[in-house]
């Protein structure tokens, strides 16, 4: 079995353990309605996770996703409030802002040669401040949350049959993201840049282009995520996505994407996003004080990654010993 398959199976196993545990603790957890809710909660993280996974595979990081979401949301709110343009034009502008935010991140990282962590930390502040600057205020200058209740728009936050539209978008994003990553030159280049920029440059890959493109893809995913989030909330605020930036990164890392770059894939991130959503939902179902929810979430996350690391180490050791034995057998 290939190592990535093993890795996915481990992650899936952890997800199953979590589901079994919560369904014992709370009878409501395993109901179809609740499971669809978990999938819905995982969806925005998963969609943005596709772009974030690309960036992490190139050994980068993007901390600006939460703020960029707010900027996209507020741009759309302005168009909604002050123009009579059709909804699709509003969506186009939202996506455009997302792409621009990603492009700027890529420019700062790949052209100005800033460390990704600090560059996206800076743009996180910039996008949030821009959101405040264009936020819709009342006569007294107080920032208001802007309702967006056009039925065409809010339908995006709803469901088609039993499944939420955002979950369908997630499935599309995962399939396309995984195909691009595994079967296109761009995908291969992402891995090459993440494994060794020097080697990638020597083999003729335009590193800057690949890195910028990874951030632009993230910007697109952020815009899509923002559209579905605001459609679900039927409004937006300047605080949209505050503190969200670590969620897709955590999902990717739980799913086996290494922050050091060069490994991991979209399927792993999907499992990670489902895992984090199940954890949030399950802890919520225990009906405890918020304080204890934070503590239990942290402890479960640590236990799981510890088990994962321990198990991975064992598998690698076993594989090595098997390799040694096979080599010895060949020598005889």
């Amino acid at each position: 079995m290939k190592q990535t398959t093993v890795r996915h199976l481990i992650s899936l196993g952890m997800l199953l353990v979590l589901i079994v545990m919560f369904s014992i603790l709370s009878p409501y957890f395993l109901s179809p309605d609740n499971l669809l809710e978990v999938a819905r909660d995982a969806s925005v993280v998963g969609i943005i996770g596709v772009g974030v996974t690309y960036v992490i595979i190139t050994a980068g990081i993007d901390l600006s996703t939460g703020s960029a979401m707010a900027l996209v949301g507020m741009t759309m709110a302005n168009i909604y409030a002050y123009t009579v343009w059709p909804i699709w034009i509003m969506l186009v502008f939202g996506i455009l802002v997302g792409l621009l935010a990603g492009l700027f991140n890529g420019f700062v990282v790949a052209r100005l040669h800033l460390p990704e962590f600090i560059a996206t930390l800076a743009t996180m502040g910039i996008y949030r401040a821009l959101t405040y600057a264009i936020a819709i205020r009342d006569a007294g200058g107080v920032i208001q949350s802007q309702a967006m209740t056009d039925s065409g728009f809010t339908a995006l936050g709803g469901a088609a049959g039993p499944v939420y539209l955002v979950t369908i978008a997630l499935i599309a994003a995962i399939v396309i993201g995984q195909i691009v990553l595994k079967y296109t030159r761009f995908g291969t280049n992402l891995y090459a840049v993440g494994a060794s920029q020097k080697a990638a440059a020597l083999s003729g890959i335009n590193i800057a282009k690949v890195r910028i493109l990874a951030y632009v893809v993230t910007g697109f995913c952020v815009a899509v995520g923002a559209i579905f989030t605001t459609a679900r909330l039927q409004s937006t605020t300047a605080l949209l996505g505050d503190g969200f930036e670590f969620d897709p990164i955590a999902a990717a890392v739980v799913g086996g994407v290494a922050l050091s770059g060069g490994s991991g894939d979209i399927v792993g991130t999907l499992i990670g996003a489902l895992f984090m959503a199940a954890l949030d939902n399950g802890v919520l179902k225990l009906h405890m004080n918020t304080a204890y929810q934070y503590i239990i979430k942290g402890i479960i996350l640590i236990l799981v990654v510890m088990f994962d690391a321990w198990y991975k180490g064992r598998m690698e050791k076993a594989a090595q010993e098997k390799g040694v034995k096979e080599a010895a057998a060949e020598n005889e």
């Binding site: 670590f246 990164i249 955590a250 890392v253 739980v254 290494a258 922050l259 004080n289 918020t290 304080a291 204890y292 929810q293 934070y294 503590i295 239990i296 979430k297 942290g298 402890i299 996350l301 640590i302 990654v305 510890m306 994962d308 690391a309």
Partner: peptide, 20 residues
């Protein structure tokens, strides 16, 4: 284990403890 994840998780634990 990646330090990023461990300290991300403990920051949630510490916040919870402070709240308690």
């Amino acid at each position: 284990v990646p330090a990023f994840l461990v300290t991300f998780a403990t920051s949630s634990i510490f916040l919870g403890l402070s709240m308690v």
